[in-house]
Design a binder for these strands. Sequence first.
DNA 1: CTTGTTGTAATGCCAAGTATTACATCAACT
DNA 2: AGTTGATGTAATACTTGGCATTACAACAAG
Lengths: 145, 145
Amino acid sequence: MQISSRFTLAIHIFACIDTFGGTHKVTSDFLAGSTNVNPVIIRKILGQLKGAGLIDVARGTGGTAVTRPLEEITFLDVYRAVECIENGELFHFHDNPNTNCPVGRNIHHILDDKLLRVQKAMEDELASITLADLKKDTEKYLGKR
Amino acid sequence: MQISSRFTLAIHIFACIDTFGGTHKVTSDFLAGSTNVNPVIIRKILGQLKGAGLIDVARGTGGTAVTRPLEEITFLDVYRAVECIENGELFHFHDNPNTNCPVGRNIHHILDDKLLRVQKAMEDELASITLADLKKDTEKYLGKR
DNA sequence: CTTGTTGTAATGCCAAGTATTACATCAACT
DNA sequence: AGTTGATGTAATACTTGGCATTACAACAAG
């Protein structure tokens, strides 16, 4: 299974705030237009990002802004805000391995640390990318055309 | 979304082959017993592992064996055999970003390399673990009890 | 040719993602 | 104060993918 598009949507949202935050009011409808995704879905994601303290959303009047300096928000922050995996575990384990079988009884002991290592490698890489990097590259590509 | 349990199931299967391959005939029913998963699902996974050239499955008579030395099969090989993600992409992108919006038009250019880096970090870590490691740790834990 | 097994199709169920409609709530502006 | 344009959120529906299950054809060894 792939990681839900909520993550790429959230990043897209930040790119829009970076780009249009100064000139437009960035509303859920505006974002829905840019992403081509339903405004309610956008609002749900905005709610998650807000819940994680990454953005402010102006109720009533509308509009969105980032709360912290862009260098201080990583892709991992965004990923965690938006990806509601149970226990934060990347790998889904089969539920009830047979405890009467020595392998079934121990498979978690055998595997858990390895899976965690893989997950950590991915999360470390996510943590190495910040919204400042995103903004820089967004400007680079928008400048071209 | 989490990575399907097919992956942990496949690893569990290899642990069973390591442990019982010498003494039992490792059939889909046997594996279904150890994993507590339906035999048909097991056979489907066995088919994928076989398709990837990682195991031989004895049709008719039954039983399973690994084709290569364990040091030469990595978790990444198993992951790729079993996880049928389209294009092998870990991240799911929203489908039709608005090409009339400069951000929507460029979001793929902006993001793709970063997402690939994250995916590669994960896959490199998967590639660093072999079935020989799995066997070693399986023996370690089974020895204890 | 019997037996135990694999390969696979058909079907069903459930969870999660996404779309959509509807509406209450809110804050600014007139 | 009322209008207006937003957000927050519930309800509903659709689709997809994972997994379970039944059934049966194909197969290989005895």
